[in-house]
């Protein structure tokens, strides 16, 4: 077996022309042989045109673990122009698979720059390009959409939307979260995957009655992070607050009995204190650690290795695991059912 890449580029092509030509790009490169497609999903990514080549590389890395049709759409730099598309197709093929066995189309990446009005109708343009009957994901890299977004179109095009609530605060995603419930769109969050070790460590520690007592009614919580403006792992914080019935919601957190503070430091640390006992959860680079401390002495420790290393790894894991019901329930209980202002 051998692997090869096929590349095809064309500028200033109109939509119907491109749609007609797309199915023949790979067979033409294979002397008329139609390959079997091995792709198992469609992943849509909407990015700035200036960064498109970086995203093509990223798409190829994603396809190594998740054979996919990846659609990278970029609006052309502003300016009135006619409706047209520049397209750059990269396909990975496996050939010479034995007698009578056709080549396999392992992945395909379609990077498109949209000019004119079609840039405004990017979601419509994606519809005919989605692989039918297979999962489809839209990785939303920009500022969250507003309430007036065409949710009906989105829900008819993609099964799930991938967000990062670390990059944009969760309350900014409220229109999408609400729409995900109304329109049945799966919601997946890179921040939630990053918080897996956080959740598992705390859950593990809560089997110990001393740790659970601290978590259920802490006097003080101090959250330390590198960035002064961002709270680390906001979605997992919501989960903790919901499960322990703190009713704290998103930061800044005000509570009659729990004093919650945010501090600046070199690593992410959560310290939950009650009397002379505390639980200290730290993101220690390669792994996470959790210490049960009494009068400044560690009386029990837990450790969890880091689950993922970087955004690409987060995404791969997210695509493997799919939508998590617990995440959805967390958002429902913490954000959608709240009556008091966030």
């Amino acid at each position: 077996m051998t692997q090869r890449s096929i590349r095809w580029t064309k500028e200033s092509v109109r939509g119907p022309e491109l749609l007609q030509h797309l199915p023949s790009i790979v067979p033409q490169a294979l002397n008329g042989i139609v390959p079997i497609s091995a792709t198992v999903m469609t992943l849509g990514i909407y990015v700035e045109a200036a960064h498109q080549s970086d995203w093509i590389q990223t798409a190829q890395q994603i396809a190594q673990t998740h054979p996919a049709r990846i659609l990278i759409l970029s609006p052309a730099p502003s300016g009135r122009t006619e409706d047209r598309i520049d397209v750059d197709v990269h396909a990975a093929i496996e050939e010479n698979r034995g007698p009578g066995r056709p080549p396999l189309l392992l992945s395909e990446c379609l990077a498109m720059t949209l000019y004119g009005r079609i840039a405004d109708y990017w979601l419509d343009w994606m519809q005919p390009l989605i692989r039918s009957d297979l999962p489809s994901y839209l990785w939303w890299l920009h500022a969250p959409p507003t309430e007036r977004f065409r949710w009906d179109l989105l829900s008819n095009t993609f099964d799930s939307v991938i967000i990062d609530s670390q990059a944009f605060p969760l309350d900014h995603w409220l229109p999408l979260i609400t729409a995900s419930e109304d329109y049945g769109i799966g919601l997946m969050d890179l921040d939630w995957i990053r918080g897996a070790a956080f959740r598992h460590l705390l859950a593990e520690s809560a089997d110990d009655a001393r740790a659970l007592a601290i978590l259920e009614e802490p006097d003080h919580v101090v959250v330390t992070s590198r960035e002064t403006t961002r709270w680390p792992l906001p979605s997992s914080w919501l989960w903790l607050s919901w499960k322990l019935q703190w009713k704290l919601g998103l930061p800044p957190c005000h509570h009659p009995t729990i004093d919650v503070q945010h501090a600046h430091g070199t690593a992410s640390v959560w310290q939950f204190s009650r009397g002379d006992q505390s639980l200290v959860l730290s993101d220690a680079g390669e792994s996470w650690s959790l210490h049960l401390v009494e009068n400044h002495a560690v009386i029990r420790a837990w450790e969890e290795p880091r689950w993922t290393s970087g955004t690409l790894d987060d995404l791969r894991r997210l695509l493997t695991e799919g939508p998590d019901l617990l995440y959805r329930e967390t958002l429902q209980h913490s954000l959608l059912e709240r009556t008091e202002p966030l």
Binding site: A206, D207, D208, L244, E304
Partner: peptide, 19 residues
């Protein structure tokens, strides 16, 4: 000091396959 109390943080959390 493990006890058999309900642990709210384990509800709905996926199975942890670490020994």
């Amino acid at each position: 000091m493990e006890t058999l109390m309900d642990n709210p943080l384990k509800e709905g959390l996926g199975e942890r396959r670490r020994p």
